[in-house]
Design a protein around this nucleic acid. Sequence first.
DNA 1: TTACCTGTAATCGAATATATTACATGTAAT
DNA 2: ATTACATGTAATATATTCGATTACAGGTAA
Lengths: 150, 150
Amino acid sequence: MSISSRFSVAIHILCLLAVSKDKATNTSEYIAASVNTNPVVIRKVMSMLKSAGLVHVRAGVAGAELAKELPNITLLDVYKAVNVVAENDLFNSHEHPNPECIVGRNIQQSLTKQFSAAQNAMEQSLAGVTLAEVVEDILESDKMRSLENG
Amino acid sequence: MSISSRFSVAIHILCLLAVSKDKATNTSEYIAASVNTNPVVIRKVMSMLKSAGLVHVRAGVAGAELAKELPNITLLDVYKAVNVVAENDLFNSHEHPNPECIVGRNIQQSLTKQFSAAQNAMEQSLAGVTLAEVVEDILESDKMRSLENG
DNA sequence: TTACCTGTAATCGAATATATTACATGTAAT
DNA sequence: ATTACATGTAATATATTCGATTACAGGTAA
């Protein structure tokens, strides 16, 4: 299976907070309408983003806002905030291979090493992208769209 | 969720074929005992490895053997053979964001780009490792184990 | 023909993801 | 203080997926 869409939802939320700057209108319901999901899903993700120090939200008061500047938030920050993949857990190894077999009793060590390296490569790719770039992409993409449609 | 253990099982199988060279003993039942799973799981994975040209197996005849030399099989080859992650499908994006919203109608394009880059980074990491290295790790690891236990 | 293997479809139970309901709690304005 | 409305969160429902398993068809060699 693939990595939970909670990650893409979180990115969406943060981009929306950056673009739609009127704090009070950014309620979970408003954001849910943009993402196309249930407001509770938004609140849950928002809660994780808050714990990670990426947004400011207060119980009872409408809206949320970014806690950092866009260039200072990487996709890796968001990924870790929403906890979609635990450490060394992108790849699932089969459990309890046979210790009577030379392969069985030694393979996990090697697999762990290689899987960890691969997961790290993926995460470092995310670390190289900031939300500023994603928002730029979005604005640029919309500009193109406008031109195409006259 | 994480990537199916079918991948680690496939690596286990191939290493076992390399180490246990008596072809006739490498039945699905024997391999299953080393991996600690059901023989049908082994046959299914073996079938995928066969389709990818990594092993030779024949219906009705006991055993299997490698179709290539260890240094010529990368972890990426195995990963693709067992089809654990489809192209551009490591990350799951939320579907149908609101086209009325500037973020909603443009974010998928950017997400696809970044997710694809991250997935590619992970896969290229796997491409840099061959089964020869994994088997070396296993043999080396077992040697250490022997020394420790006198 | 027998014994034993691989190939594969079908099914089961456990685990997980997302959506949703329900409600407790917090805040600000009147 | 009360009202209106927001967030916080537990609990549940439904759909999907994974690995294990059963059952059986088909192949091969002695």
